[in-house]
């Protein structure tokens, strides 16, 4: 599979960086692909728009930054506004539907949406796992990453004692995406 570029974005505190790390780790260590993860640093990591770019490829990744965004996951209006223009034609946009209003509609992209934060809070009782719900949903909507690899990566990346909650979050997101 040739190069794929996925941006995860939201605001500080949503676990965007953690989700990106889990995604990158899954592709690099479980799917055995070449992966480069870069993050936005600076004021953005302190409450504003937060974003990370995961590039996956079977060949060497020469240029480690954005060239052609294939998939944009966004969990905040501010991040949506900032990054929607980057998404290439034919790309896939994934949003938390309660947090993002599609006020810049594009007919050249696909959109999938999930109320990931609401599911995390209402169904799982912990808003903090909205990022993992989103990863499950992502796995169901792209062939860029294997479901098993991503699930394994979630397990290897979270604090001990939270396995059940996180796997439940992941499966809920995956199930929602598979409907």
């Amino acid at each position: 599979m040739s190069r794929q570029e996925i941006r995860l974005s939201g605001f500080g505190g949503q676990g965007i960086m953690t989700a990106a790390h889990i995604l990158g780790k899954a592709a690099a260590l479980f799917d055995q692909r070449n992966v480069t993860l870069t993050k936005s640093y600076g004021p953005e990591s302190r409450g504003g728009a937060s974003s990370a770019l995961v590039i996956m490829a079977d060949e060497d990744i020469d240029y480690p930054l954005l060239t052609k965004l294939d998939l944009l996951v966004t969990m905040s209006q501010e991040a949506y506004t900032k990054y929607i223009g980057e998404l290439s034609s034919g790309g896939l946009l994934i949003i938390d539907r309660d947090l993002v209003q599609l006020d810049q509609p594009r007919d050249d992209i696909e959109v999938r949406s999930i109320p990931s934060t609401r599911i995390a809070a209402d169904e799982l009782g912990r808003k903090i796992v909205a990022n993992i719900v989103m990863l499950g949903f992502l796995a169901a909507n792209t062939d860029a990453i294997s479901k098993d690899g991503l699930k394994e990566s979630v397990l290897k990346s979270i604090p001990k004692g939270t396995e059940k909650l996180n796997i439940s979050a992941f499966e809920t997101g995956y199930g929602y995406g598979s409907q």
Binding site: H21, G24, A28, L29, N34, V35, T36, L37, T38, K39, Y41, I61, P64, L65
Partner: peptide, 9 residues
Amino acid sequence: ETVGHMSER
């Protein structure tokens, strides 16, 4: 900074 902050295998 790019090499220092990027994650890879």
